[in-house]
Structure formats: C-alpha cells, structure tokens
Design a protein around this nucleic acid. Structure first.
Lengths: 111, 111
DNA sequence: GCCACACGCAACCTCTGGTTGCTCGAACTG
DNA sequence: CAGTTCGAGCAACCAGAGGTTGCGTGTGGC
C-alpha cells in the first residue's frame, strides 16, 4: 500500500515544474526565484509560489541575503522523498510480479 | 534530468486518489466506479472522472459488461510508470550522492 | 541621491478534483 | 409483462492550485 506516503512531500514532488526546479537547484547548488525563472518557462511569481510549496514541504530552505532570497535544497528531506517514491514503486512492482506469477501458474495448469 | 518522463503518466499517478484506486484495482483484480467508490472517501462520479484520466493515460482499460463497466489495470503500462518513478528517484539519488561526495572532499581538504 | 533590480502582495484566469442532481438503460422481481 | 432497482453518464456548480499581469517596496550600485 502507499498508505505510509507523506502526501505533502509527494504532492510537492508531483508537480513537473517543481521537479525541474529541484533539478536546477541541485545542479546549481541553490538559486533565487529570479535566477530559476530565467531557466524555466514560467514567471518569477509562479516560481516564488512553488518555492513556497517546496519550503513548506521542507524540501528547500530559503535565507534572505541582501535584497535577494537564496534557496537551497534540503538534501535529507529530498532523500526522504526519493525513498517514498521508490517505496511506492516497489510496492506496485511487487504486486505486478505477484500477479504475473499467478497468471503463469494458471497458464501452466491449463496446458 | 527528469526530462524523459511522460508527464501524462506521471500526473496520472501523481494524484493520491488515483494511486489508491490503482492499489485497489490491483488488489481486487479490477472493479467498477461503484465498487471503487465504496472503498474510497469520494463519490462515484469523482471515481468515474479519475478512471477516465487513468484510461487516457493507458493505465487502466474499461470494458462494458451488461449494465456495468469493469476496469482493469494495464500491467505493462503500470510497469512503465513504475520504471519512470524509479528513474527520477535514481537521478536525484545520484545527484545527492555526488553532492555528498563533493562535500566530503571539501571537508577533507579543509582539515 | 537616484536608478535598477529582486522581492512580496493582490487581482484575476483556467484547469482539475470534488460535489449534487438529474436522466437513461439494463437487469431483477412480482 | 410491468415496475422497481441499480449502475452509468451527463451537466452545473464550487474550491483550490498553477499561472499570469500589475503594482508597491526595500536594498544595492553608481
């Protein structure tokens, strides 16, 4: 089951734009709403909202620095999110394999 | 990068209700909008809409049977979705590890 | 001191997940 | 066969999220 999944984390990571933002933040070692919006097909304001979501999910952490606000990925929390992704994947995978085994057993019996 | 991800598949699987629906369909070996809505905290109509989304993503396949419409999971397509989940997870994982290695290298050098 | 830049806030639009209310058609039951 | 029931399929509506434009404000560089 995917009952143990933290919906806040998952839905934070579920949005394609936010996934790309995490990619970019990881690649560049952090960034601001403005620098990110330059690398994305959305406006700075949209990026700022997403950063808010990621912040509330604990995936990034923003610190004001002069007139800008620099965000960095919280690696531990992202690692948790990755773990949950693979947990759900593994659960489905297991179920698919179980089904496949059963199907093969039935086929064997029928032949 | 998560650029190779099929957004249709991902967003189909991104919704928590749809994930639970896939769980239930796998566990019971199929179901109808009505049977699923009995196991979920949403109405039949909401379930029907989700089944439409899953159907368009190719994750389930519905066949009319008398007055009801039975849906079953397309296992191959779900396997593809699982593969994409783990691909994204693996990408982030790799990046996190790389960052950790670099951080440790810097720490070493500083000591 | 002035200008430019980055941010934050507010209004607005659209799509999606969800609801209620209705009709229609198939199936069971007398 | 007639009537009822049950499942599906609209349609209208509501709330929230992703996105936009527009505007005010504070900080930093010249």
């Amino acid at each position: 089951m995917s009952a143990t999944v933290d919906d806040r984390l998952w839905s934070a990571v579920g949005d394609p734009t936010r996934r790309r933002m995490l990619d970019l933040l990881l690649a560049d070692g952090g960034g601001t709403a403005t620098t990110l919006s330059g690398q994305l097909p959305v406006t700075r304001q949209a990026v700022a909202k997403h950063l808010g979501v990621l912040d509330r999910a604990g995936l990034v952490h923003g610190t004001p620095s002069g007139r800008e606000r620099r965000y960095e990925v919280d690696e531990a929390q992202l690692a948790r999110a990755v773990a949950q992704l693979s947990a759900v994947g593994a659960a489905w995978d297991a179920r698919l394999h179980r089904i496949k085994r059963i199907a093969e057993a039935i086929r064997q019996r029928r032949d």
